[in-house]
Design a protein around this nucleic acid. Structure first.
Lengths: 201, 201, 201, 201
DNA sequence: GATGAATGAGGGTTCATTCAT
DNA sequence: GATGAATGAACCCTCATTCAT
């Protein structure tokens, strides 16, 4: 017992190995069963004691944060790619929001702790969220400068909307078209622009 | 012990009394502590055994559904009022969405089980949701007929959006302006209408 | 699983049965392994779930208190017997202290929680201790009235001394004569009375 | 990490430095939080790994023994002072017992492991205790020779009594007068000397 | 020697749910 | 029907101790 899977019994720099292995298992676990599963169970499946898991990640949030950090890099790449490739700031924003949305649906139940983290300054997840909001703000400002986005929109709100959309999506799976529909709603709203209809009076 | 607490000594029509009393207590409980509290605690506070609670409501969802049904009536009234008072179908839809949004924030954590219910046909909550979607569709169709809403929007998607907004709101408390911002986003989207900017190319 | 040992699967007034059975097991457990053993282990050995044990005794102290209450009756009998039989108030006190001392060595480690309880008013054990102190005071007052006990002694201090003696006894087992020696010390002190030696100066 | 924290950067005589530093930290730790605290925490606070701590002190008892050895010297000084200054062997004994009592309350919880050690020959703490008992015997013999102490008292019993008194004192804090009362009890017992009351018959 | 990661049994506790009474 | 005792898996977490590096 206690082996890190890959062969010998605790070979060399096993801290990193263990950490990585735990993350792997946790990723799988969270993906399959959602992020509410038992940490002890993850430890067991990873072949380590609960203490080991606890050493690496003092609580569920820390584990999640570490897990996301890995995924973060992918998102950063996408961000850079969008910046590089996309001249139209509106489309760039759209693509970024889409990328974020995909990222947020990585695990079932992920939006929940992120939302919770938003209310607590100290959480490691809060930092992640802040990063997202900042990036969103960048894309948004560019779009606003170009007149592609409403001036009254804030990055934080966009993030929240994407988050909420990601959250709701888990349920709407049965309905294939929901994701796009929600995306469209977020983009254009349900209301037709007044200009098309004449003044409201 | 075992009496219905609130004065009387449990005469004949126990069952109905109990049911009503449990609902009352549950309402208070859920309102104050969110819907994740212990059912045992509710039973205890209602002065009944957990078995009794379970007889009336086989699980948390059933209890919640019963609870919401009561609240439903309020929402129905609002719906009727809107229908009666509001000539502009767009504004009517807007008001309806707002009413629904308020309703969905009645208890902390309420959106979660509703979302879950959407994936399961059999859930008692699913029926409630269906009712909402239907009503939303009615308002929406009217609005679409009048050109006040985009023709591609579906009632289900609007409901999901309102639900998601209600969900995200619990976290955004610190930020006072979030609710409105999200509302505006849902209504108008972040993107400026193309007509204002010229063709997309 | 889950049966209370004695045959059928949860026969009649099993609450009392279970309670009694748990107490029995706990008594055995505490006697053999001291009072620091795992509560879960006791539950398991009693054939009940941890929750059941918890329901009956919300914590270790409560369990202990219940256990002692049973023993209490024995002590009360002894107290009454002493009162009945013993004319010499000094000897009566001595016998009571001895009885208490024996009672306090019922389980290994028992003095510890009792000592701890003395600092906390709310503890169920504290009440037990108070009872002892009161009784000690009664015997002591009689002895003092008869000139058999020093007037400056207080019941509380005598109790503490007996408690301390019981505590220290667990270690001194190897030394057979320690209990008596300590008893004698408590009774007569180590110092010879000044009257035998003349004034101190 | 892993440096000895307190300034220097761990030159050659690591081992001794480490040992000393661990002892320092442990002393502080035990004084403040009692001797039941986590050894890991001590190691961490001392800036060494738990392995290092364990190398020096294979278990909690060993650490404690080492710690007490340092304090021992103080007690030895007091012993010598008493010997030097005190002509009256009875008062000398009393002073020694008092000194020992103070020494035993150095850390919260100290009496416990000492008592335990008394049952095990091999314990490092047992040696410390033996020293105390020996010294007590010396004072006691002198007092007995002078008729100041009962001839039936043994040093070991006196030590046990002082130990027990130290133990019980932690609980009796609320009661300011307990320490003195217990001291008096140990000295004179609760029973009035028979000579004052006539023969027992 | 020193390190500190790993161990893993064990701690107390909660609670949705069942079922004998 | 109502009751509430029983269930027992699950939760998170701690820490003395070992041992590979």
């Amino acid at each position: 017992m206690g082996a890190a899977g890959a062969g010998a019994r605790r070979p060399r720099t096993d801290k990193q190995r263990n950490r990585a292995h735990i993350l792997e298992v946790a990723e799988e676990f969270f993906s399959e069963r959602g992020i509410t599963g038992s940490l002890d169970a993850i430890a067991k499946q990873a072949g380590v004691g609960p203490g080991t898991l606890y050493r690496h990640f003092p609580n569920r949030e820390a584990l999640l944060a570490a897990l996301l950090q890995t995924r973060d890099e992918e998102l950063v790449s996408r961000r850079d790619a969008i910046r590089r490739e996309e001249a139209d700031s509106g489309i760039a924003l759209a693509r970024w929001l889409e990328a974020m949305g995909e990222w947020l649906t990585a695990f079932d139940g992920l939006p929940e702790p992120l939302r919770a983290a938003l209310s607590e300054e100290t959480s490691p997840l809060a930092i992640t969220c802040q990063g997202f909001i900042t990036t969103t703000d960048e894309f948004l400002h560019a779009a606003q400068r170009d007149g592609a986005a409403h001036p009254w929109v804030r990055g934080r709100d966009l993030f929240l909307t994407v988050l909420a959309t990601a959250w709701v999506r888990s349920a709407a799976l049965a309905d294939e078209s929901s994701p796009q529909a929600l995306h469209a709603l977020m983009q254009s709203g349900w209301m037709t622009p007044r200009t098309e209809r004449g003044p409201l009076t």
